[in-house]
Amino acid sequence: MSQPMPPAPGWQPQIPMAPPEPQIPPAPPVPQVPIAPPAPQVPMPQQAAPADPAGYVTAPVAAVQPGPEPAVPLLTLDYVSAGYGQFRALFDVSFAVPMGCAVALLGPNGAGKTTVARVCSGLVQPTNGAIYLGHQEITGMPAHELRRLGIAHAPEGRSVFASLTVEENLLLEFRSSLGKTGAPAALERAYSWFPRLRERRNQIAGTLSGGEQRMLSLARVLADLPRLLIVDELSLGLAPIIVDEVFETLDTIRSQGCTLVVIEQHVNKALELADRVVILQKGRVVYDGPTDELGDLVGQLIPGL
C-alpha cells in the first residue's frame, strides 16, 4: 500500500456540500424543528439542501442564513444517560460536535466511549437526555433513519458481514446510502484507499484476517462520505503503516466537509488529528474542549501517556 493516498478517480464527495441548484430554502425558523432556538443562525458553508438522489438528507437540517455567529453544532448530546439492562454506563453526558470538526473521544477501558458512539448512532437508546442533529431532535430514532440523516458508525472490532464477500459488504452500504448510481464511485474510492480489499474483493469477509476485516469495516463508512462519521477503536488491529494512512484519509475526508468523532487508543495520533477532545471517565465527561487547550492536562486526564 503506497502513501499518501491519492483521491480516487471517481472522487465525488457525496455529502450534500453545495446545492446542485440554487434552491435553498431561506426559511429562518426551520419549520419542522419546533424545539430549535430562535437564535440567529449562521451560514454553514458545507451544509445545505436535499441534494442527494437517494433521499440522503430528508430535510435541510439547518437553513443557510447570513450572520456572523457560531454555527449550531452538527451533533449535540444533552444530558444523555444510557445503559444496558439495569446497568448504567453513561451519566449525564453532554457535549457537542461542531460542524466540520474532528472530535477525539478518549478515555480508559470501560469508560463508556463505545456506549456514547452507540447512543449517537441509535444502536442504544438513551434512558434520559436528548440528542440533536443540528436543530433536529433525533432522540429515539432508529439507527437506520439516523444513517439516512447522515450519521455513520463504524463499530469496534470485526464489524463485517462474515458470510458476504468483500464487495457485497461494500455494496450493501453504498447502495443504500448513495443509490445504485453512486455506488460504483464509492466502491472505487474504497478500493483505492485500501488496495488490499480490491485484491480480495471476492473473498468471503469472514475469512479475512483481523486487520483486513477492520479495513473493510472502515472502508464501508469512509468511502461513503457521511455527514457525521463515528469511528470506534479506529486503529484496532491495524498495522502501523496502515494506521498512518487511515489517519491521512480521515484528514482528507474532513477537509471534504465530513465531521468526525474518533475513538482511539493511540492518544497522540488522535490528538494530532482532532480539533476538539472529549474525555470520558467512568461514564462521565471530564473534559470537553479544543485540543490545543488541553495542554498538559492530558497527562492527568489520560494517564499513561
Partner: peptide, 13 residues
C-alpha cells in the same frame, strides 16, 4: 494474538 488491541495505554503497559 494481539493481546493489547482494545486496551488503553495504561492497561497495555
Amino acid at each position: 494474538d494481539e493481546p493489547s488491541s482494545g486496551l488503553d495505554r495504561v492497561e497495555t503497559m
